[in-house]
Design a protein around this nucleic acid. Structure first.
Length: 120
DNA sequence: CGACGAAGTCGCC
DNA sequence: GGCGACTTCGTCG
């Protein structure tokens, strides 16, 4: 169950995204359960670099309300996760049905192409 | 304002 | 598969 202030935050972001960070959060909400996207693609969409996307996600105080665990490396590695670390990230992904082996995700769970198409 | 450093990526070996 | 260079911008001084 969400806390009241979390709900308020979510609604605020949905109604009026104020920062580039908010935009990233909105994009994350488009990812279906069981799929992932790469830092690289998000960076491409926002015309910035993967490093910056990672920064935005790291600042995400609302995890896992904002599903930043669905963002992984372009080459199939898990990438980081701030509170809880890789352990937590792997667990969250598995809960959503993503098969993770040796901290890597298979290429067929990537949602990158569809996400780009949604935005054209 | 200037400097710092980070949840990545690419090219080279 | 490991290593170094490069990138961008929120935060801190």
């Amino acid at each position: 169950m969400l806390k009241e202030n979390e709900i308020e935050t979510a609604i605020r972001i949905l109604r009026e995204p104020r920062t580039r960070m908010d935009i990233v959060y909105l994009l994350l909400l488009l990812i279906p359960i069981g799929k992932v996207v790469s830092y690289s693609t998000l960076a491409h969409i926002l015309k910035t670099t993967p490093r910056v996307i990672a920064r935005y996600l790291a600042m995400n105080k609302y995890a896992p309300l904002i599903p930043c665990h669905r963002v992984v490396t372009k080459r199939g590695e898990l990438g980081g996760y701030t509170p809880g670390g890789r352990e937590m990230k792997r667990r969250l992904l598995r809960l959503e049905g993503v098969e993770v082996q040796q901290d890597r995700v298979p290429t067929h769970v990537y949602f990158d192409c569809q996400l780009k198409q949604l935005l054209t």
